[in-house]
């Protein structure tokens, strides 16, 4: 029997480090998906008579979905069992998972930057004689990376919340589907579009950051309360 009382942050750090080692397939699957969509990105996104437009937008959207699925999977029974290896409770598990998803968000945003530079090289070698790119400086590149990271963070937190809802009550799956259908019938798909526009049409970086942080914190807070209800060894 140990009388050593572990600190909250010590446990969270241990769990985060464990997840970083044990869930490496999350990163490797990211690599495969990014490479696959790098091939897609070498095809024109749009074109006019004489100029092809290329974009990494599709890749970003797909990788956001990847982040959502990764977050969802973290809430599944198999992954939750891993936490039992450590002294844990709902607080440490939720914070460690949130930190892990923050790490994947930073990783994904960084890789998006690198891969867009790789796309420049590929396009100039294989596809076009000359390429026009926006004239952005290092600070603006950092802002773009930061914004992408926030998008990954938000989608991750939403995926985590949905996953936790599903784990809490299997009926939640039907409730979510039902809510989506009712919402669609009543309002068309405008309510989803309006939620997306909440971020995509925001013109102030500060407000955008606040919105992203508020939504993420809200999702993780709700997930935390749900996780208290979900037995680690139960359904």
């Amino acid at each position: 029997m140990s009388f050593h009382e572990p600190s909250l942050w010590g446990v969270i750090k241990q769990q985060w480090l464990y997840k970083m080692r044990a869930y490496r397939q999350v990163f490797t699957s990211f690599i495969f998906i990014q490479l696959l969509f790098l091939l897609f990105a070498t095809q024109p996104f749009g074109s006019s008579d004489t100029m092809n437009i290329y974009s990494v937008l599709t890749m970003l959207v797909v990788l956001l979905i990847w982040q959502g699925i990764a977050a969802f999977l973290l809430t599944t029974k198999g992954y939750r069992y891993d936490d039992v290896t450590f002294i844990c409770n709902a607080t440490t598990s939720t914070i460690a998972n949130a930190l892990f998803l923050l790490t994947t968000a930073v990783f994904a945003a960084s890789m998006m930057f690198f891969v867009s530079r790789a796309l420049v090289v590929i396009l100039l070698f294989n596809e076009v004689d000359a390429l026009y790119v926006q004239d952005i400086n290092m600070q603006q590149m950092m802002i773009e990376g930061f914004v992408q990271m926030l998008y990954f963070l938000v989608v991750g937190s939403i995926g985590y919340l949905i996953g936790m809802l599903v784990q809490w009550h299997k009926k939640a799956v039907f409730s979510i589907v039902l809510l989506v259908i009712i919402g669609y019938v009543l309002m068309g798909n405008s309510y989803i579009a309006n939620f997306v526009k909440l971020f995509t049409e925001e013109t102030s970086l500060v407000i955008f950051t606040l919105k992203a942080l508020v939504v993420s914190c809200a999702c993780y807070s709700i997930s935390y309360f749900i996780s208290r209800e979900v037995e680690v060894d139960g359904s």
């Binding site: 024109p44 996104f45 004489t50 100029m51 092809n52 437009i53 290329y54 974009s55 990494v56 937008l57 970003l60 867009s116 796309l119 420049v120 396009l123 596809e127 076009v128 004689d129 000359a130 390429l131 026009y132 790119v133 926006q134 952005i136 603006q140 773009e144 914004v147 992408q148 998008y151």
Partner: peptide, 9 residues
Amino acid sequence: LGALNEVVA
């Protein structure tokens, strides 16, 4: 000719 939109987010 091509134009690459790197700033998407």
